[in-house]
Amino acid sequence: MIIDLQKFIVAEQPFWSELERVLTRQEQDPYRRMSFDEIGRLHYLYQRASADLAKINTYSSERAMRDYLEALVGRAYSFIYGARQETVRFKPWRWFWRTFPSTFRRHRRAFALSLAVMLTGAIFGAAAIVIDPEAKAVLMPFEHLQGDPSERVAKEERGANEKHLTQGKSTFSAFLMTHNTRVSVFVLALGMTWGIGTVLLLFTNGVMLGAVAADYIRAGESAFLVGWLLPHGAVEIPSILVAGQAGLLLAAALIGGGAAKPMGERLRAVVPDVVTLISGVAVMLVWAGLVEAFFSQYHQPTIPYAVKIAFGVVELMLLVLFLRYSGRREIGLAMRRRLRGRWSKSR
C-alpha cells in the first residue's frame, strides 16, 4: 500500500475526464474524422490511463477505482485498436456490382460443392419418382403437386389460378420473398452444425426439385415445367445454392481441416464474406419473388411458354455473366483502355 490514492486521483482525474469526453464524442458519431492532433492527444490520454491502471493494479487494490479505470481503458482500447474499416461508408452500388460477385468467385469451390449436393438430391428424387411413382406423397409435401401433372396443366391453362392471383399478387410476392429469404438464412445458419444441416437441406431441396421435374417430364408436360419454373427458378435456385455456399464456408471455418489458425481466427476471416453472400442472396430473392408472383404463374395462352422460357434463359445467362465477370479488375481496365483508345482516335 504505497500509493497516495487521493493525491493520485486529484492529479489524474482531469485526464480521465478528458478521455471520457473524447470517447463519448466519437461513440456518438463514428464517422467523425479526427485531426492529427486530436488522434495524438487521444493516444496520449489512453496511454496515461493505461499507466494509471497499471499503477492501481500494482500499488493499490481500491476496487471502485480499478473498475472505473478498467472500463475507461477498455473503451479507449476498443476505439483505438478496433478495425477502422467501418469508417468507410457502405456503398451499395459498388458492393452489388463488385464485392458480391468477386466474393462469390473467391469461394467458387464451396458453390461447386453446394451445386453437387443439390444435383445429387435431384437425381435421387427423379430416380425415386421413376422407380416408385407412389413415393410422390413423401417426396413432394405440397398439395398442388400431389395430383396428376396433366390435370394441373389443363387447369392452369384454363386460367383458374390466374383469377385467384389477380386479387393478391403483391401479397404472394411478399410472401415468396420473405419465405425464401428465411429458408436461405436457415441454410446458412445450419453451417454451424459442421455443415451437416446445410448439406441435408440442400439435398432435400434437390430431391423435391428432381421429383417434380421427373413427374412432369414423365407426364409429357416438359414445356409447362420449364415455362413455369425457369423464370423465377433461374434466380431462386442459384440463390439457395449461394446460401448453401455461405453455410459451407462457415462449416469449413468451423471444422478447420488442418488449418494452422485457431477456430476464432478462421471464423473472423470468413464472416465478412458469408455476410456478403447472404446479403446478395436476399437481393436475388427479391427479384425472384417479383418474377414468381407477377410472371411465372401466368401460363399459355396468357403468356406463351416460348416467351417464358426465353425470359428464364436470358435471366440465367445474365446471372452467370454477372457472377462470372462483374467487378473483375482486368475487365474494367480493358474497357477503360478501349474507351481511351477510341477517344484518342476521335481526336
Binding site: 476505439f79 478496433g82 467501418e86 454451424m192
Partner: peptide, 20 residues
C-alpha cells in the same frame, strides 16, 4: 471477443444465426 469495436458483419451474422 478481443474487446474491439463491433464490425457490421459481426452484428449481422450473430443475429442471422438466431435461426439455429
Amino acid at each position: 471477443v478481443r474487446g474491439l469495436r463491433l464490425r457490421p458483419s459481426q452484428i449481422i451474422i450473430r443475429n442471422l444465426l438466431r435461426a439455429v
